[in-house]
Design a protein around this nucleic acid. Structure first.
Lengths: 340, 340
DNA sequence: CTGAAAGCGCTAACAT
DNA sequence: ATGTTAGCGCTTTCAG
């Protein structure tokens, strides 16, 4: 826009130093010892001319792309949207870019990942999907780049960033217990899946600590989606309407589905049944009654995952196993103390 | 993983041709005339060795980054999530990458865009935010890269991909009229904004065509968010409860807010008031009653925007002014024929 | 019909 | 305390 491109070469002309000197000076390369005044001069003129290192040059030299890939099931899920948001900003801040691919479950995903790695040369994969999906972990790791699972864990796989799922499940259930509930149902995901299984365990932990007997009849396998939450609530009501005063639902979306069924069937929320969901998003405030949820810092989680991956790529660490423990209850309208 | 990197150099060794010949052969460069058999040989061995051109080399040579930037107000908004989804996949398919930055309104955005352009070297900006936000158009265009507005228009700005907002507003309102409504309210956005203004005009168009007098009392300025939709509905009810049997709300989120207030105030939806929203997303099925909406192909819109930008960068066109006209009503539970 | 050479902007090893 | 050189992988004149 203003003139010719500002490269190390033009800085060299202007200052009289060599390209390589400039390069090392601007990066504070310790292998360079330079007079403070000259260092200052170089930095000053770089600043003045608006020098920006060209990522292409650096990439070529280093044989690196400085790009990460993220594999996400629909961005329309606000939980994932928050995680991606965090990952994006961490990447940009670190001078990386993030390529996001949507992997609708059931679709052929193999090719997407191969493209990401082989064509776009991403150096690492952030995986927010997987397990019982259309790609398996071995296939992914076979692509030859580090993989970090986000909001997921897999048997024997060493890189992950997750929240304290089990503690969160316990927190949710304990909250319901604390406000007087005793007959607490749980709409779960597939128990074999990490998130679902842990949340379910937390539910049981809380019951046990409170001395409440676990009743399998009150647990209904649902799933993570709106429709699955709705269908599961139908089944639960058919089986034991009136048998519970509160329900802990495995996801925000499923909770929305459950609430829609409760209302349809004339069950007041929270009058007859309190509803608690895991994870927080805009959706929680967009349904009525607004949803009480367990909130974890999802944006931070995305950031941590991206930073961790970058640390791995830059050899500052060899693995990442971060668990966010700071879940908290966000009280909204869908829960209330039990009626006496 | 398997061996040394497959570059043009190794293909040259293997085939006996020169790097440059290989390069041209693989790109079907018309300046190369080569025997069909040799061409085939080259392509075959490239395939066999799994050759992938390294984007870094190409970038450096061409002084191009093959990266686009997108400026988005929160990905948690499903409307934007869909658009970004489409843009992402179009970019990947074309060998570009897409860097997404979140621009929460009111935050200092200048620096984000500068970073995108100067540090990450994006070659074009897809803008989904703007106007009355923390950055103005002239500032953006001053960055020296092409800008395409998506789901927005700005006075006198030539690049945009939008939907037929006005026709959509008319469609929404006509639908309500067709099922018998006469007193139809409208929760609008700020009329000065493109989307809001057009949708409002569409509302008036439909009334006029049906011979229904426009009543300013039935139009309440809201905004695009849940909270603004809720607040506006409060005001509308305070002013003229019972004075309308249907309402067309400017966004999905605002409609969710409006519905929450209607229910809170004991107004049945759709029994007493039918609710129609503009744009469709998962949220429409996650609230109860499920929302009738005007659906436009938002993912396609994102794709079109990215493709258009790429066409501009590659000189296949000089501007893009695409309007998606194919809106349709998605009937759900929030609307019903007027009661007799 | 094909090859040789140069250069994009950057960094690293090796000289002074 | 600084300069020289070479090369990352690709494309593009310009020569044969």
């Amino acid at each position: 826009l203003v003139g010719p491109k500002v490269t190390l070469g033009v800085l060299a002309e202007r200052t009289g130093f060599d390209k390589s000197t400039i390069s090392r000076a601007l990066r504070d390369d310790p292998t360079l010892s330079i007079r403070a005044e000259n260092l200052a001069l170089i930095k000053r003129t770089a600043e003045a001319l608006g020098y920006r290192p060209d990522p292409a040059g650096r990439s070529l030299k280093a044989s690196r792309s400085y790009a990460l890939g993220a594999v996400v099931p629909s961005l329309q899920n606000q939980i994932h949207a928050q995680i991606v948001e965090g990952a994006q900003s961490a990447c940009l801040a670190a001078g990386y870019s993030l390529l996001v691919v949507n992997a609708e479950p059931g679709r052929p995903q193999r090719e997407l990942y191969r493209q990401l790695v082989e064509k776009h040369r991403v150096e690492g994969l952030l995986v927010l999907t997987l397990q019982n999906e259309a790609v398996e972990l071995p296939e992914l790791t076979a692509l030859g780049v580090p993989v970090v699972m986000v909001n997921r864990r897999s048997e024997g796989f060493g890189n992950f960033v997750v929240v304290a799922e089990r503690a969160g499940g316990e927190l949710a259930t304990s909250y319901l217990i604390d406000i007087g509930h005793r007959r607490i149902a749980h709409l779960s995901g597939e128990i074999g899946r990490f998130n679902a299984g842990e949340r379910f365990q937390g539910y049981r932990d809380a019951l046990e600590k409170a001395g409440i007997a676990y009743d399998p009849d009150l647990v209904e396998p649902a799933g993570y989606s709106f429709e699955q939450g709705a269908a599961a609530m139908e089944r639960l009501l058919d089986r034991c309407q009136g048998g519970f005063t509160a329900v802990f639902v495995v996801t925000l979306m499923a909770a929305a589905g459950a609430i829609s069924v409760l209302r349809k069937r004339g069950v007041a929320v929270p009058g007859d049944v309190s509803v608690m969901a895991f994870h927080d998003g805009l959706l929680a405030r967009a349904i009525s009654p607004t949803l009480t949820t367990i909130a974890y810092p999802l944006v931070d989680m995305g950031e941590a995952a991206a930073k961790g991956m970058i640390d791995i790529l830059e050899k500052r660490r060899t693995s990442i196993t971060t668990t966010f423990a700071d879940g908290r209850v966000v009280e909204r309208e869908s829960t209330a103390p039990i009626r006496l």
